[in-house]
Amino acid sequence: MATFEETGPRHPVTESTRVDKVHPRARLAKNVRAIVVIIVAIMLLFPVFVMMMTAFKSRSDVVSIPPKLIFEPTLEGFVFLLTERSQLSGAALEEARANADELGIFGQVALRNGQRITGPSDFTIRLRNSVIIAFGATVASVTLGLFAAYAFSRFDVPGKGDLMFFILSGRMLPAVVVTIPIFLMYRQLGLHDTHAGMILIYTVFNLSLTVWLLKGFIDEIPREYEEAALVDGYSRFQAFYKIVVPQAATGIAATTVFSLIFVWNEYAFALMLTSQKARTAPPAIATMLGRGGIEWSAIAAGTLVFLVPVLVIIFALRKHLLRGVTFGAIRQ
């Protein structure tokens, strides 16, 4: 034992030997660092916390002075957001009050304002549109981007540099201005206010991002793997499909997340290119007007409901994401 200890390291190696890490109170420093990070995270998340509180506040609690941290939670915001209601009066109201026990929790909240729920709100339809369009556009832009990125990465495409710059150029004009030509074009093509049209336009705008990102990732994959596969009798397409795609999983995941965040929150196109059938949620959330003012709690509730799907996907893919943001810029 003694001899062994003398030849091996005196202490178990828990820290790297990089000098900027190693100092006498490394462990303490690490804890301090963790605490600082958590404090910073709390500060950054405070506005999100405010949003969560607001979602459960009544109208007068939202504007109480000073702002309240403790309040009586109410589901009014969610009721406003998710349901269509009609005002009751006189006998109908009395009758509804008498049968209040039969109502669900939303129904009871609505009844307190003298209202009856008549059905789900437009927001639920818009949420569904958002899911369809975001899913469609993300899948399409990542798939197309993957093909193109592979070809640009592996083959000597004529005029490659210019083509790559061309692909990027679409993002450089303020979106507000681009919407008008696209609007005119969509009217002509019958794509206005259709899911297909929205999927198409988001695919187009994300392609610059996906091609550039994915090319970076595919460049990093050693081409020897494919060469070996080709020698083994794989076709090009098989090599791409069975070798490159699995290798690029991290990059695909990261690209998916960035595409999704863009499509999910996009506002200007959604406003101008849709009216009823294909309208997504973002233009609706910010403009929720109720009885004489902004319905803060409904906006907050809408934002939270709208955040959940992205958050779930980001958590599912977070390992890839942290690695994936290199944008292929560093290739050691």
């Binding site: 990070v37 958590i38 910073v40 995270a41 950054l44 998340l45 506005p47 999100v48 405010v50 949003m51 607001t54 965040i261 999910w264 929150n265 506002y267 973002p282 959330i285 910010a286 902004i294 906006i299 907050a300 809408g302 934002t303 709208f306 955040l307 992205v310 958050l311 980001i314 958590f315 977070r318 994401l321 942290l322």
Partner: peptide, 19 residues
């Protein structure tokens, strides 16, 4: 924690401005 601090950029900018 690293994932959580990304929440601000996942929000819709219009709503962020309003809030």
């Amino acid at each position: 924690v690293t994932t959580l601090i990304l929440i601000p950029m996942m929000l819709s900018p219009v709503v962020v401005g309003l809030f």
